[in-house]
Amino acid sequence: MAAPATVIRGSATGRKMDGVGYLFVAFFAVPFLIFNILPVLFGAYVAFTEWSIIGTPNWVALDNFREAFGDEWARLAFWNILFYGLIIVPGVTVVGLFAALFVNKRYPFYAFARTMFFAPTVVSATVIGLVWVWMLDTQFGLVNQYLGFFGVSPIPWLTSIEWSLIGVSIASIWWDLGLAFVLFLAALQDIPRELTEAAVVDGATRPQRLRYVILPHVRAVLSMVITLQLISTLRIFSQVYVMTNGGPAGSSSSPIHYIYSVAIVRMEFGYASAVAIMLFAVIVVLTIAHRLLLRERA
């Protein structure tokens, strides 16, 4: 192992070879194989079968996938994540960047702001869901009451086909902001002070500083935030389950919500696994695209 000396020095034990290392790793690797890897392989098999919990699996080859392509509820769920993505990803990115720029300026009470922007991320989907069902209540919800001051008539955020996806997205942006915010903040704090000061001395205006000094420095993090958020939005489930249970009429459902209802309500495990693998394929394609994009920049 001729790795650079600064990264990996000699072994801690001074020996050439620590066979015991395998044992150290095994404590983690055994549950990892059983609970992280095996289920995926098993799931790949189940997807090609017809299987309710009783009885034996029945090999049906590609039937489940064929069914999924013709299933309008599945199609609706996959369409919906496109719209979730179009709302939540830009929302989290833009607000997260703004929040990070704001906190990084160290205005009065910036520590409170830092705490608040991250706090929703640490509470569970149940909290997000119930609090926002209340916030977005059509008649008495806080959001509609304040919008009412501006003459906006009450919006049925979670109870109408047109709005339900947007209502869930608003709650999701509130919930998900923390990660993007922290990553942006870390990137901003890495910008050398001399650089911004030099820009001030050179008479750069604020928008110029943002455009030519700050944004180029957060570009790598920006693409990472977008991809992480995109992947997590593709997996949207808990808040959907708590807030609307996918309704009304599937208007706020998501692939994982659909997988859940196929497996739990209809007990069709084979079909549920097939839809899960289709979602997995979408995520893998996007993750690889992300890696390629990052490599291009580096």
């Binding site: 609970f35 992280n36 289920p39 995926v40 098993f42 799931g43 189940v46 299987w51 919990i53 992947i231 593709l234 997996r235 489930f237 994982i256 997988i259 497996a263 495990f269 549920a272 696994s273 899960a276 693998i277 979602l279 997995f280 995520i283 893998v284 993750t287």
Partner: peptide, 13 residues
């Protein structure tokens, strides 16, 4: 890269 949701159904079974 593997979303936990993919392994959730087989694991449940």
């Amino acid at each position: 890269m593997i979303p936990v949701e993919v392994s959730v159904i087989p694991m449940l079974l």
